[in-house]
Amino acid sequence: MSAVNGGDVRSVLMVGVGGQGTILAGRILSEGLAEAGYDVKMSEIHGMSQRGGSVSTHVRFGERVRSPVTGRGGADVIAAFEKLEALRWLEYLKEGGLMLINDFEIPPAPVLMGLEPYPDGIADELSGRARVGVFDARAIAEGLGNARAMNMVLLGALAKAVGVGGVDWEGTIRRNVKKGFEDLNIRAFEHGFLRLGPFG
């Protein structure tokens, strides 16, 4: 019997808050991998969860992918676009897997209302439980000229952590981002890919 998450298939999770650009990042990752010859499946949740709720994009790739979703303990890499979401999705990480954490906070409704505190020390806590890489993708994107390119910094770091060759990331980004913002997004991706890490 094969392992629950199947042979050579690798699983990536992008988690964050509705509106952070996880869907676009997931699309670029999936298309890049598909063009490089992998079988790819991607799954995301739309609808009510987009109204500021917790969102997740699953990307799985390999020789032959069956299930489009990653279960608990199944993700090789998780990219948390928001710090609290890293904590929420921790148990989806595979043993020995890597958690990339954007050191960026979006307080959820109970915190905004002053009912619960935003937990302190998430990055330290997770560092004690798994391999982690922590960086401030928003500050990096701001430094490159636009905080909204934060998702591409994360995607760059994620693409490097996933460690596949032969993918035309630049071309894939160019095709998928808004006209006029291609170069910014490519620079943000390259910063994540070339300058961050190695992690853990």
Binding site: M1, A3, V4, N5, G6, V17, G18, M48, S49, Q50, R51, G52, G53, S54, R66, S67, V69, T70, G71, R72, G73, G74, A75, L84, E85, L87, R88, L90, E91, Y92, L93, K94, E95, P108, A109, P110, V111, E116, Y118, P119, G121, I122, E125, L126, R129, A130
Partner: peptide
């Protein structure tokens, strides 16, 4: 999902790391 089926049928499956730190809920809002 594969994990739920694996645990239900074979009584085993992967477990991820756990933390005692509690994550506040993030419900959708207007």
């Amino acid at each position: 999902d594969a994990d739920i089926i694996g645990k239900a049928v074979f009584g085993r499956g992967a477990e991820g790391p756990k933390s005692d730190l509690k994550a506040p809920q993030r419900p959708p809002t207007l």
